[in-house]
Design a protein around this nucleic acid. Structure first.
Length: 909
RNA sequence: GGGGGCAUGGCGUAAUUGGUAGCCGCAGCGGACUUAAAAUCCGCAGGCCGUAAGGCUGUGGGGGUUCAAGUCCCCCUGCCCCCA
């Protein structure tokens, strides 16, 4: 027989035998296997909505089709940089396990994916390399989608959204108009970073630490531009109060949001401006303070340099110094201005106010540490009881007047610090002797009564500046008309398409403003010539509602229908990085509340549960003298890392993967070597999900070995002729009082095996509910596999089949390809991913005897094998009669005996 | 400075929430198989003393509550994150 006539299957087997004679007739080859199943799942659209392909077990339970509960598992969508990194992998694998588990528990699951596709990197690529941002982005999406698909995620790709495509940003614009209509979008002047050489606005990320432009190197200036804001402050209270509803969120994220909103209760107090003789001029300065109790200690008043009263109140002789100071301050960042440890700078403006509490005449200053847009842009200076006022007063020799002293003590000596704690009032008129907490309310009430104050709630949160003077963003859909003012683009004219084919140079002002043909349009109202808004939106606008769009991604008449959005949302489980703990999550919550109030959806909060996964770190080598990073590949001996050139001993630590540190691990290379299932299992096993994860190649290989062991385990079962074809798990109706009859006359091996199987079901189910613990779930899979290796051979077929079938069901969410393949190898019908999640049989966990620990005075001294059902009195008797008791009590009767049934007996002499 | 978190073998981690500390894995050591190596399988493994049986000790340090503390309380040290 000529070789060419050989049966192809035989040939393949022969090749395997030749290449690896020890490993038996078949071999775990993840690359081929994973590609095959991914193709099949895609062909069968297995992850699309399953409403019309209900698994039989649910139909048999008589559950109506419409009544199938929904589960929405969501990953934070990526920016399409072109490269999938390990952080993405960790994020999406976690979400996928949750989604697959929910599906097996009978939920209709939505797991979508999309692209946060507007943003600076595309524009930078355009400026630097002359590529078209749209092409650059689309190519990146195409390649990242392929990389993602290799992970075997159960994503419904039909619902994919891309924020830079007009079928998406059309609705971002539509939603902007909703905000405009609701009076929640407005324009006002705000400062931007201005590059005087390139004549363009820079994003904060484009300004380096020294305040210079990333491109031209010019010192960046602050400029005032008229810009668009969303009135998020109007929702400060609900955004803060509803945090208490989010008990499925990490506590620290809730705390961060609460701090960011920063609600503080205080008072507005009005100081009349007086002339040189102390007579009122008719002008007033209103300050905001959280400490009205300290008003008798005010020794000056400070305005922000930008405050509108400053030009009017400044006297002629101070004109020059005030202008010079305002110019200086305009170059500082907010952080520099308000940091508590920085020196505070200011100048007097020559005007005076009268303290309404005690009539004192106080000088007015301007200072860098007061911000124009917080409170009223004016504060009263109380050096004795405020850190920043104290530093300022020392700097300029302003008087310090103490009005609170520690309880039961003399006046606090001002050695080097103000008194910030609670205490008793002094020098405060008829409030003397009160505690300052009492005085705070009483002084506010007194001021209110006298007409110079009122209590006031103040927020740290500012309105959201959404204008960007950039090209690659969603155009703001309004038209400026000389006679009609700001005119929204009519809905039927949406989308306002971003023009294509621009030559982006990164200089000369806003890119869209330079395109006259695009800018000049007739006014939709009066028809006269008008100009388009040339600002684009902050990309956080696009990402504030994408999770709503997934629910109804193909809708061409609305961003989403109320029916679909209310069916799927709120998101049951959101998974993403902690770096979005504040802005993205806050903006999304804000959007949800506004849209709820507009009647577009029917829930208060978008994300019921939130999981913030930790970073993926990798081993990093650094030369301590040169500060250079060394690639791990260039380190000859990892146990004694040395610089390949100088031979110096290197520093070694784990740090977030990044190109500049040469410590990145490419997901594709891991999948090429070991397959996606190994990568998934490793990343889940190595650390709890919210902790940082240290990448370690040796551990990856260990995970691969585990999957190979499973392969061999099934191989052996097949040779034994076992099949899971008619394997049905006993259902949940079973209880300990009615032991299952499936397993007649179990041997010791049967009992051990069943105990291991049902322990694993219980433990893994537990790890996948509530607080997710994928690391221990994988560890339980390993324990089950170890128990099977030990007991499978001696167990009956029924028990063995139950064990094998259950193992594959439990494995399915974690290593979906291998589980599917082994399921079919063992004759399983249908997809393993369409089976129901197994239920633990309590009767399998029962034991005849247990090990009872004997403690003497809390220390373990030995143990006894006792009947599992022995009562407390019996346990005490057994313990007292034991050799251990005899040895350690030396004949004495214990003064106390503590019995913990099923656990231990503690004898206290 | 304010707020939050963490600290367990050589390493990553686990511990029914007050009940036998160290599960699972990595690295390591010993053995089997092999001409040999790899792979695989079996075994050992917190530290100290001891041939062993066994004992002492041990969850960053100090104190406390309790029959019993990795777990609860107080103080200290170190690291991380957020906001200033």
């Amino acid at each position: 027989m000529a070789p060419s006539t050989l049966c192809p299957r035989w040939l393949r087997a022969a090749q395997v035998l030749v290449s690896d004679p020890q490993s038996g007739p078949s071999r775990y080859q993840p690359q081929e296997l994973e590609e095959r199943w991914q193709r099949q799942w895609a062909e069968q659209q297995q992850w699309a909505e399953q409403q019309h392909r209900l698994p039989e077990h649910l139909a048999s339970e008589g559950e109506p089709l419409e009544g199938k509960p929904t589960f929405y598992a969501l990953s934070m969508f990526p920016y399409p940089s072109g490269n999938l990194h390990m952080g993405h992998v960790r994020n999406y694998v976690i979400t996928d396990v949750i989604a697959r588990h929910a599906r097996m528990r009978g939920y209709e699951v939505l797991q979508p994916m999309g692209w946060d596709a507007f943003g600076l990197p595309a524009e930078n690529a355009a400026i630097e390399r002359g590529v078209d941002p749209a092409d650059w982005t689309d190519q990146n999406i195409a390649s990242m989608r392929l990389q993602l698909q290799r992970l075997g995620l159960s994503i419904d790709w039909d619902r994919e959204v891309t924020t830079c495509h007009s079928d998406y940003y059309r609705w971002t614009q539509w939603l902007f108009l909703q905000f405009l209509e609701a009076d929640l979008a407005y324009q006002k002047d705000a400062t931007v970073n201005w590059d005087p050489i390139d004549q363009t606005v820079l994003a904060n990320e484009q300004v380096d630490g020294a305040g210079r432009s990333w491109r031209s190197g010019a010192l960046v200036e602050k400029r005032k531009l008229r810009q668009w804001f969303l009135k998020i402050t109007a929702y400060a209270d609900p955004l803060l109060d509803d945090l208490s509803k989010l008990d499925g969120w990490p506590e620290r994220v809730r705390t961060m949001q609460a701090n960011w909103i920063g609600r503080s209760t205080g008072a507005e107090l009005t100081f009349p401006v007086v002339d040189g003789t102390g007579n009122p001029t008719g002008t007033e300065i209103t300050v905001f303070t959280t400490r009205p109790d300290t008003i008798f200690g005010a020794t000056y008043v400070v305005l922000a340099p930008e405050q509108s009263l400053v030009p009017r109140l400044t006297t002629e002789e101070h004109q020059l110094s005030v202008e010079a100071f305002c110019d200086l301050v305009s170059r500082q960042s907010e952080q520099e201005r308000t940091a508590e440890d920085k020196p505070k700078l200011g100048v007097p403006i020559g005007a005076w106010v009268r303290n309404p509490a005690n009539g004192d005449i106080l000088p007015i200053w301007i200072a860098d540490y007061v911000l124009a847009d917080y409170g009223t842009g004016a504060v009263m200076g109380v050096p004795a009881h405020d850190q920043r006022d104290f530093i300022f007063a020392r700097q300029y020799m302003l008087p310090v007047r103490q009005v609170i002293v520690p309880e039961g003590s003399d006046e606090h000596a001002f050695e080097g610090s103000p008194w910030l704690e609670a205490g008793v009032m002094i020098h405060s008129g008829h409030f003397d002797g009160l505690t300052n907490v009492e005085a705070r309310d009483q002084i506010t009430a007194w001021a209110e009564q006298q007409g110079w104050g009122r209590s006031r709630v103040q927020y740290r949160l500012r309105d959201w500046l959404i204008s960007r003077q950039r090209y690659w963003g969603c155009p703001i859909p309004v038209i400026h008309c000389q006679s009609c003012g700001v005119v929204p683009v009519p809905q039927e004219q949406l989308p306002v398409e971003l023009p294509t084919g621009l030559a982006l140079a990164g200089k000369g002002g806003s890119p869209l403003a330079q395109l006259e043909s695009w800018v000049n349009v007739p006014c939709p109202c009066c028809g006269q010539s008008a100009r388009r808004e040339t600002d684009t939106m902050d990309t956080f606008m696009c990402s504030s509602w994408y999770y709503l769009r997934y629910s109804d991604a193909a809708n061409t008449t609305l961003p989403f229908s109320r029916e679909q959005v209310d069916r799927w949302l709120p998101v049951d489980q959101y998974v993403g990085g902690i770096e979005h703990a504040i802005l993205h999550l806050l903006y999304s919550r804000f959007f949800t509340k506004v849209l709820r109030d507009r009647g577009l959806l029917g829930f208060d909060e978008p994300f019921t549960r939130l999981l913030t996964q930790g970073m993926v770190q990798a081993i990093t080598y650094k030369n301590p003298t040169t500060g250079h990073y060394i690639a791990p590949a260039d380190v000859a001996d990892p146990n004694d890392p040395r610089d390949p050139y100088s031979g110096e001993v290197l520093e070694m630590f784990y740090e977030k993967m990044s190109k500049s540190k040469y410590n990145g691990v490419d997901p594709a290379s891991v999948i090429d070597r070991f397959g996606a299932d190994t990568a998934r299992m490793f990343i889940l096993f190595k650390a709890p999900p919210e902790k940082d994860l240290e990448w370690d190649d040796a551990d990856v290989e260990g995970q691969f070995r585990f999957l190979q062991r499973l392969w061999r385990l099934v191989e052996g079962a097949r040779q034994r002729g076992l099949s899971v074809a008619d394997f049905t798990l006993p259902d949940g109706a079973m209880s300990a009082s009615e032991p299952t009859v499936l397993f007649a006359e179990p041997s010791a091996a049967d009992r051990e095996l069943r105990r291991a199987v049902h322990t694993a079901i219980g433990a893994i189910s537990d790890d996948l509910s509530g607080d997710y613990q994928f690391n221990t779930a994988v560890s339980e899979l390993m324990k089950l596999s170890n128990a099977m290796a030990e007991h499978l051979a001696a167990a009956q077929d029924t028990t063995a089949v139950e064990a094998l079938g259950t193992l594959l069901l439990l494995l399915a969410p974690f290593a979906p390809h291998l589980a599917e393949d082994l399921w079919h190898q063992l004759g399983g019908s249908g997809s393993v991913h369409q089976q129901s999640w197994p239920q633990a049989d309590p009767s399998a966990l029962l034991r005849d005897t247990i090990e009872l620990v004997i403690q003497v005075k809390g220390k373990v001294r030995g143990s006894l094998t006792v009947p599992a059902d022995a009562d407390k009195a019996t346990l005490e008797q057994l313990a007292l009669a034991s050799d251990v008791a005899a040895k350690w009590l030396a004949g004495q009767a214990p003064s106390r005996v503590i019995v913990v049934p099923g656990k231990l007996v503690n004898l206290v002499p």
